[in-house]
């Protein structure tokens, strides 16, 4: 058991001394996941909102499909995008494979269903009178949408945080599309897998602690926002 204690001790030292390698890995994770979740927010919230408030043929199929995509295995997304981005693939000439951009794309594909699905649920659970009130106040379609999105803000924040949690902790897409290149595409999860494989626990544990801390922080922010919304 000594190697575990030694690993933990070394991990804590790395965290307190802000080890350069560890920081570089954390920064890759934060940059890639933040960018992918930004894209998922900009696309997933309007999509979920639109599906929730509009009636169109095939709406049920879209809703079922979105819910099915929630449990999309990360390796399947990795495999699918790999086949598109590899040199022989249709998007091979873009040269995206094994770059952070490929990871962003993969994580966006993973988080889009979560963000849009939870946004859809948040919009659908709004009181029907909210929409009528917006109409009574004389809102245009756009103003009405903005009022309703504001009203559903707690649910939307939950959607974004859940999406971030999903991509921040995933490994399949990052490994297959990023290639785990040091100081370039190596992120927290791929680094933990590599270090564990090498039997080097210290960096793995340090990164694991950072991962857990960030997830914890996100949840605290989420509960704060939710409670603020409930009391308003």
């Amino acid at each position: 058991m000594n190697y575990l204690f030694a690993g933990l001790q070394e991990a804590l030292r790395m965290i307190f001394h802000l080890d350069r390698e560890m920081l570089s890995i954390v920064m890759v994770s934060l940059k890639v996941s933040s960018l992918s979740i930004l894209l998922a927010t900009l696309t997933g919230i309007p999509f979920g909102f639109f599906v929730a408030i509009k009636h169109f043929p095939g709406k049920r199929i879209v809703v079922v499909l979105l819910h099915t995509l929630l449990s999309l295995p990360t390796v399947v997304v990795g495999l699918l995008l790999y086949s598109f981005l590899s040199r022989r693939g249709p998007l091979g000439n873009l040269g995206l494979l094994y770059t952070p951009w490929a990871m962003v794309l993969g994580q966006w594909v993973l988080s889009f269903p979560i963000v849009s699905c939870l946004s859809l649920n948040a919009t659908q659970s709004l009181d029907a009178r909210a929409k009528k009130t917006a109409m009574i106040l004389g809102a245009t379609h756009l103003q009405s949408a903005s009022l309703l999105l504001f009203e559903a803000r707690a649910g939307l924040a939950a959607a974004v945080i859940a999406g971030f949690g999903r991509v921040f902790g995933e490994i399949g897409v990052s490994m297959m599309l990023g290639g785990n290149i040091r100081a370039y595409t190596r992120n927290i999860t791929t680094a933990i897998a590599l270090e564990t494989g090498k039997g080097e626990f210290a960096l793995g544990i340090a990164l694991g602690l950072v991962l857990l801390s960030i997830s914890f922080l996100l949840n605290i922010i989420f509960y704060y926002l939710r409670n603020k919304n409930i009391s308003a």
Partner: peptide, 11 residues
């Protein structure tokens, strides 16, 4: 402007 019987206030 219509004031509904069971009016709604935004959160």
């Amino acid at each position: 402007h219509l004031v509904m019987e069971n009016p709604y206030l935004f959160h």
